[in-house]
Computed example of a mutant assay.
Amino acid sequence: MADEKKVKIKLGARPKSFKHTVSFPMVDGTVGCIEVTYKYRTRREFAGFIDDLQATAKTQADAYAAKAKAQLEQDGTVPMPTQKELLEFGLSGSVDFIMASVEGWNLDEKFDRTAVEQLADEVPAAIPSIMEAYRGAINEGRLGN
Rank of each mutant, 00 (worst) to 15 (best):
M1F: 05
M1G: 14
A2G: 00
A2S: 12
D3W: 09
D3N: 10
K5P: 00
K5H: 08
K6V: 15
K6D: 05
V7Y: 15
V7S: 04
G12Y: 08
R14Q: 07
K16P: 00
S17A: 15
F18S: 03
F18P: 01
K19C: 06
T21E: 12
V22Q: 04
V22P: 04
S23I: 05
S23C: 05
S23P: 00
P25F: 06
M26R: 14
T30H: 08
G32D: 10
C33P: 00
I34R: 03
I34M: 10
I34A: 03
E35A: 08
E35M: 10
V36N: 01
T37H: 02
Y38N: 10
R41H: 12
E45D: 13
E45C: 01
F46W: 12
F46G: 00
G48E: 11
F49Y: 08
I50K: 13
D52Q: 15
D52I: 06
L53Y: 04
A55R: 14
A55M: 11
A55Q: 13
A57Q: 15
A57M: 13
K58S: 11
T59K: 15
T59W: 00
D62P: 06
A63M: 11
A63C: 02
A65L: 13
K67F: 13
Q71I: 11
Q71R: 15
L72V: 02
E73P: 00
Q74A: 14
D75G: 03
D75K: 04
D75P: 06
G76A: 01
T77A: 03
V78Y: 15
V78H: 07
M80F: 05
M80S: 10
P81A: 07
Q83Y: 05
F89V: 07
L91A: 04
S92T: 14
V95H: 03
V95K: 03
F97E: 04
I98F: 05
M99A: 08
S101I: 02
G104S: 09
W105Y: 05
L107T: 07
L107W: 01
A115W: 01
A120V: 04
V123M: 06
A125R: 06
A125N: 14
A126L: 09
P128K: 10
P128W: 09
S129H: 05
A133C: 13
G136M: 14
I138R: 04
N139C: 12
E140S: 12
